[in-house]
Design a protein around this nucleic acid. Structure first.
Ligand code: MN
Ligand code: MN
Ligand code: MN
Ligand code: MN
Lengths: 218, 218
DNA sequence: ACTAATTTTTAGATAAGTCTAAATTTACAT
DNA sequence: ATGTAAATTTAGACTTATCTAAAAATTAGT
């Protein structure tokens, strides 16, 4: 049996290691889970024992296939619940994450598959992140950050990197959301700010914003 | 902050003490939660300390208003989730309880109130139990067990006492459900079995069944 | 009223997950 | 290559919730 705490460690390691492809070090796990490095060491030993990951002392950890399976399933549940909250229960995209952090741990195959069907098998969550299907497969569209866009090009906003309430509310207040069509007018080398145009509005966004907004070419 | 374990104790005490009206003894709590009496003693001390209940050594416990408030809120969540599972996700009434045991601990005022609205403010759960509203108020219709019915009378089935999968499946297989109109034909004094008639079908049910089926007069 | 059975509480131990502080290993700069 | 800084692990302690076994209190039977 896997505990809630173990699930949270596995999920964090999955995200930190780029979908479980890269090794993850102790300190980054500790930071992600707001805990101490010594606690992480104890836990990764246990997770290695249970074969959710491979652990080399002082070298870091990497998820096994078994571990990745657990992680993908939690991500699936997290994102489906987020869709449910926005589509059916009038939550805004900045309110869903916190509740989904808890709902993602509810264990019922039937529950999650029926929820998937009820929502008509959505491919993306409210932040533009892809939702794994029942078999753990998901589409990964190639998106670029606004900070890596090219001047003169036109893009569609398809996701956010930072899903904090602060950032999402900032986007709301500036009328930027998923689907917004954005033209890149200018990139300021001095501070890496970007001047963009959308719906006849022109505005300058900071590097911080530019790094956290994902686009795809129209 | 209240823990998941504390919530389960409070809920059990609420049900055992008839909506928190009666004193509950240590052993019955232990049995309900499948734990040991010594564990219960430790926990009720903690719950008394936190003022969720009053505890007199060797005498048992009774919920405070604060404790009842917690309990009613958990019951509200449990029953609303059960309605959701049946109405929206194709669960049968014998499948919902287990999942609802977990969903009832998700903490979000907005979530539960929006769910309530989404389900159009249901008054009863799939087992005929009343659902408390946002303020903890709920209708308590007076229902009687089939075992206490009167020969010759006609009743409507409005609830079940035992919500175990076994009992509910037994009812399903005999085409008895909420809303079924039942006429009491005979009560056998020897074994307290009851002969009933519904939808042209006549059958004899055991005392065990008769005690767990709630009816109201038509 | 007294004894026996039952119920409840206490005492001490255990497991999970966390922490601080100290020790160890690795990485990096000269 | 060597010393220092950073990262990681170990050691020992704490908290929550549980258990077993023993002690104490209550209840019930005669
Ligand atoms: Mn999220
Ligand atoms: Mn998301
Ligand atoms: Mn239930
Ligand atoms: Mn129910």
């Amino acid at each position: 049996m896997i505990t809630l705490t173990e699930e949270n460690y596995i999920k964090a390691i999955y995200h930190l290691g780029k979908y479980g492809r890269e090794m993850v070090n102790t300190n980054s796990i500790a930071e992600a889970l707001d805990t101490k490095a010594s606690s992480v060491t104890d836990m990764v030993k246990k997770l290695a024992e249970k074969e959710y990951l491979n652990y080399k002392k002082y070298q870091g950890v990497i998820l096994t296939e078994k571990g990745k399976g657990i992680a993908v399933n939690i991500v699936r549940k997290h994102r489906l619940w987020e869709v449910f909250l926005v589509e059916k229960l009038n939550f805004t995209w900045d309110e869903v994450h916190e509740v989904a952090e808890h709902l993602e741990h509810i264990r019922s195959e039937k529950l999650i598959n029926e929820l998937d069907a009820f929502l008509e098998f959505p491919s993306y969550d409210p932040h533009g992140d892809p939702i794994p299907d029942k078999n753990g497969k998901f589409i990964n569209i190639d998106k670029i950050a606004l900070s890596h866009s090219e001047i003169g090009n036109v893009y569609t906003c398809v996701g956010v990197k930072d899903t904090s309430s602060h950032f999402l509310k900032y986007l709301d207040s500036n009328k930027i959301g998923l689907g917004t069509v954005i033209e890149v007018l200018h990139k300021e080398p001095f501070d890496n700010s970007v001047k963009i145009k959308f719906n006849t509005t022109e505005m300058v966004v900071s590097q911080n914003v530019a790094k956290n907004l994902f686009l795809k070419t129209v």
